[in-house]
Simulated scan of single mutants.
Amino acid sequence: MSIPFDQSNIRWNTLEGLDHVHFHVCAVDEEKRIVDILFKFDANSKIALHRHRCDYVTVVLQGELRIYRANGDLKEVRPVGSYVSTPGDGEAHTEGGGDVDVIAFFSNRNVTGNVYDILDPDLNVVAQFGIPEFKALMEAQGPAVKAA
């Protein structure tokens, strides 16, 4: 049994049209080309189809991260505590939580363009998020944690 991740001081944010996902932008470093984000994916749900455009590291802090191929087949399950380093421009996929909400830290590295391309079912790009978008989201979300 794993202990739930204490998220009481995290300001979770959402974006209209992107269901089953909450985020908190931890850092955007334009000079080092890094975008660090905490994501919370709803239990037994899938987020939007997307592609990671840059290298990234994932650390699962709560629950299990389930990764699905574009056709919906389960590709991989990452348990709590897993650390995975993945190159960018991989296959399109979706992600979601297992039986509990999953919380995972994503450190996006070597960002030269987009961090994520959001895709429709035909793999057409419908939205893009890069450093400028994450910088704006970070500025809009307010302080890093709620005041005690």
Rank of each mutant, 00 (worst) to 15 (best):
T86Q: 06
P121G: 05
T86Y: 07
L65H: 00
G72F: 02
C26K: 10
K75G: 13
D6Q: 02
K46E: 04
L119G: 09
G96V: 01
N9C: 13
P121C: 01
N110W: 12
A136R: 08
G88F: 08
E133R: 15
V28K: 07
V57D: 06
E133Y: 15
R109W: 09
K32C: 11
I37Y: 06
R53G: 00
F129P: 02
I118K: 08
K135E: 15
D19A: 14
V25F: 06
N9Y: 12
R69K: 04
V25T: 03
Y116C: 08
G90P: 03
S82V: 05
V125I: 11
V77K: 04
I67K: 05
F23H: 04
A147K: 15
F23A: 05
A104P: 03
S82W: 00
P87W: 01
I118L: 15
D122A: 12
E31I: 12
H50Y: 03
D19I: 14
L119T: 10
H93R: 08
Y83S: 06
L61E: 03
G96I: 02
G63D: 03
A27D: 15
N44W: 13
V28N: 07
I3F: 07
H20Q: 09
V115N: 06
Y56L: 02
K32V: 15
G81M: 01
A140G: 06
E133W: 12
Y68I: 04
L137M: 15
E133P: 08
D99W: 13
V102G: 00
I37E: 04
H24V: 10
V21K: 12
G88K: 06
D55H: 09
R109H: 14
I34C: 14
G17S: 11
D99S: 15
G63L: 00
D36I: 14
Q62R: 02
